[in-house]
């Protein structure tokens, strides 16, 4: 019995979430600073080099266009997820929200024309805000709550679409230009997403709002004692996730012109989380580099291409994503002795 009690240091805080500063001495994973600064870009460059060596076709012609087109929706969802992870929560409903957003847009394009995308973003911001309000004010675990909203949103898109495919029959030109090639031959929508990532980076690093969000993620109790409106900051993070899911929905309509409950976008959940985590976002909160998430999303889009080049069947894609998510968290996880991880 005595050996058991001595292995647990008496100095570790009693709260389940260990303070990051206390873990530096005993950690074994990669230092988060190093990973955050260079890791995501390095992983992408190495993976891209390997793929290019095996399959030179990816360098020329439609290769880069396909890659960035695939990465756009993942990047948008991942940026929203990164914001939620940044305040220490998780949003499991964002892929379902993206599909619902695509349906809302498809239905709104006819009557509202150019205003439809804006309406879509507003509706999805409201969906995200409801998630945030419930998490912040009723103090329930975000994974359980967003699992519930995932069910509600899935049912909503089944009802909206009447269990079939919804086509954007009129005014398709309002969004169809998003995947026209622009700067450097890459689609407009991808550059939009990159601009959003850079703006998000500026907000996090240069504004008091960003600092406050970081404070909530690093130590929520301390943030409350500092007089921050922690609950509204969480609502803001979840609303941003909703807006980004809506933007991903706009991309779905722009690419496919239609949306269905089990079609394009319904499998964005894990790729989105993977992109955020590979991009250097810590699941414990407070550590996010939106520019890293851009490389995370590119890596996620590249993984199936690399896997095919290596001779792995594309059917193993979800298996690879699963392994990548676990590996990304395991590599950066804190391993303080005696800390309780649920």
């Amino acid at each position: 019995m005595t050996t058991m009690s001595t292995t647990t240091p008496a100095t570790t805080p009693a709260a389940p979430a260990p303070a990051p500063s206390a873990t530096g001495r005993a950690r074994r994973g990669l230092p988060p600073g190093l990973w955050q600064a260079a890791g995501p870009a390095a992983v992408f460059v190495v993976l891209f080099a390997v793929t290019a060596a095996l399959q030179p076709a990816i360098l020329s012609g439609v290769g880069p266009i396909n890659l960035t087109t695939q990465a756009t929706a993942v990047l948008l969802v991942a940026l929203g997820q990164a914001a939620v992870l940044h305040v220490g929560s998780i949003d499991l409903s964002n892929a379902a929200a993206a599909v619902l957003g695509a349906m809302v847009l498809a239905l709104a394009l006819g009557p509202l024309a150019a205003a439809a995308p804006l309406v879509t973003l507003l509706v999805m911001a409201l969906v995200g805000a409801v998630n945030g309000l419930l998490v912040a004010f009723t103090q329930v675990p975000s994974f359980a709550l967003t699992l519930g909203t995932l069910g509600v949103l899935q049912a909503a898109s089944l009802v909206v679409s009447d269990n079939t495919t919804v086509y954007a029959s009129a005014n398709g030109e309002v969004v169809s230009w998003l995947f026209i090639q622009a700067f450097a031959g890459l689609p407009v929508a991808f550059w939009f997403a990159v601009v959003v990532a850079v703006l998000f980076w500026l907000v996090l690093r240069r504004t008091s709002l960003g600092q406050a969000l970081t404070a909530v993620g690093l130590n929520e109790t301390a943030a409350v004692f500092s007089g921050l409106r922690t609950r509204w900051l969480k609502v803001a993070a979840f609303s941003f996730s909703g807006v980004m899911a809506g933007a991903a929905g706009i991309c779905i309509i722009s690419q496919a012109g239609a949306a269905s409950s089990f079609g394009l976008g319904s499998d964005l959940l894990l790729p989105g989380i993977a992109a955020a985590l590979i991009g250097g976002t810590a699941i414990t909160g407070g550590r996010t580099n939106p520019v890293g998430v851009v490389f995370g999303a590119l890596t996620v889009a590249l993984i199936p291409i690399t896997a095919t080049a290596l001779g792995v069947t594309p059917q193993a894609r979800s298996l690879v994503y699963g392994v990548v998510v676990i590996a990304a968290v395991a590599l950066t996880a804190s391993r303080a002795r005696g800390a309780v991880v649920k």
């Binding site: 989380i273 699941i283 059917q315 894609r317 979800s318 994503y321 968290v329 395991a330 996880a333």
Partner: peptide, 21 residues
């Protein structure tokens, strides 16, 4: 030392991948 919701989320997709294969 990966939290269970992330570990089992990853394993969820590993299971789906195994089933697909």
């Amino acid at each position: 030392r990966v939290p269970t919701f992330i570990a089992s989320l990853g394993v969820w997709y590993i299971g789906l991948g195994v089933a697909t294969l």
